[in-house]
Design a protein around this nucleic acid. Sequence first.
DNA 1: ACCTGAACACCGTTCAAGT
DNA 2: ACCTGAACACCGTTCAAGT
Lengths: 245, 245
Amino acid sequence: MRKLKTDRQPEIVAAALSVAAERGLDALSMRLVADRIGVTPMALYGYFRSKEDLLDAMAGHLVSEFAAHNPAHNPAHDPAHDPAHDPAHGDGSAYDGDWRGRLSALAHGMRDVAKRYPAVFPLLLERPSVTPDAVRVVDVAFQALLDAGVPPAHVPRIERLLSTFLLGFATSEVRGRFAAGTGKTRAHRAYGDESEDDPAAPDPFPAHRRLAPVLARPVDWDAEFEADLEDLAAVIAAAIARPAE
Amino acid sequence: MRKLKTDRQPEIVAAALSVAAERGLDALSMRLVADRIGVTPMALYGYFRSKEDLLDAMAGHLVSEFAAHNPAHNPAHDPAHDPAHDPAHGDGSAYDGDWRGRLSALAHGMRDVAKRYPAVFPLLLERPSVTPDAVRVVDVAFQALLDAGVPPAHVPRIERLLSTFLLGFATSEVRGRFAAGTGKTRAHRAYGDESEDDPAAPDPFPAHRRLAPVLARPVDWDAEFEADLEDLAAVIAAAIARPAE
DNA sequence: ACCTGAACACCGTTCAAGT
DNA sequence: ACCTGAACACCGTTCAAGT
């Protein structure tokens, strides 16, 4: 058996995504996926050559939803954005000025997907995806950066910089990497519970102590994401200012 | 048995790191680690409560090497950096101006660790680490950002932005996410092998086509990393310019 | 053409027992 | 105190066989 069957692939991917959502990615097994669609584990191997292949297909499905539905996001820094515009039509030059809106929509789409598939999303940083859907997403980003005036020689690099940050942010958020360094956990050492061990000993984390009031505050992750996007606009500006070659 | 033994923990972590390096993280098992140090799998459970705990300890070991040895990196954009300085001594205010050098050293240290432990490094984006070593690394970054003049209210956010990018970059690099979109793979669609399917059909990836000459060039990842660090300096500048609260 | 059953070589972890 | 042996409930995947 060389050629794979395709008809039930979407059904299998959907089953795998729901198993991962319910029991976690680590608990995902060919056996559980097979159970879910009422079939023997070995039947899956007619559709995917291995579990690795199935994981790739799952990652590809997430990418395909990046640009799918644009839920109401806060377009505060993008007042010119017109939701009636269909980004799929070919005439790109008509709204060159909308590159901020297109990048913003992509960024929010990615974060939304991460929230919808928290268990599976981290796969995207580890699995290179070159499906047509993935290339299409990158193409939209390329075009937006070209429209912004980034020199062509720097466009792929800036796209990698931005997508790396965005994937990393969403992954950190859903996996709790950010939260771990926040609030009581991190402030604790500097804030102290009054029972400081040895007040004469040099503080091992002086900057944490200095930032204790800030670190004790709860973090609004939506606001942090928006602030990050605004600051990253400076990266694009820096790339635009670079010598063209 | 409530309390864990600690004496052989470093030996076990080292064995686990070498098993992961040789056979990959997916093939890492308690049984193989136990074999490596000539012991029964169950003996490990006296030192780590679970495989998850062992993975956390492995991640912690990588973090502890971020600042360890500063291999010769290109200090091109940091001519004032003096390698004779020992960042460990307490007198920090004497070289406030060296914040660029300290951030750069941290960034390069992280990427070096990624290259030394490619199989294990991706754990760092998925496992929140709050070991003393990890907090120390964050503290160095906090201090550098404070010295740079970033308003305290924005320092933790900017630290998260930068560390997210750096972890993501190194992960993408060692896992091949970057390379997958490069050279022949990505340029192929736009470049074409002359045997274009239908020249009348609308190009599904117009920006790729426009960037084909750039995409066909091999990428110097060291140079890309340096360029990214330079452009990210603009993020720090943007944060400095923000209203303090 | 599509699926099943049995089998192989593995897992993490528990528990009681050994020295 | 530290480690072992046997056992339990799982894995991914191969291969030959069923309908």
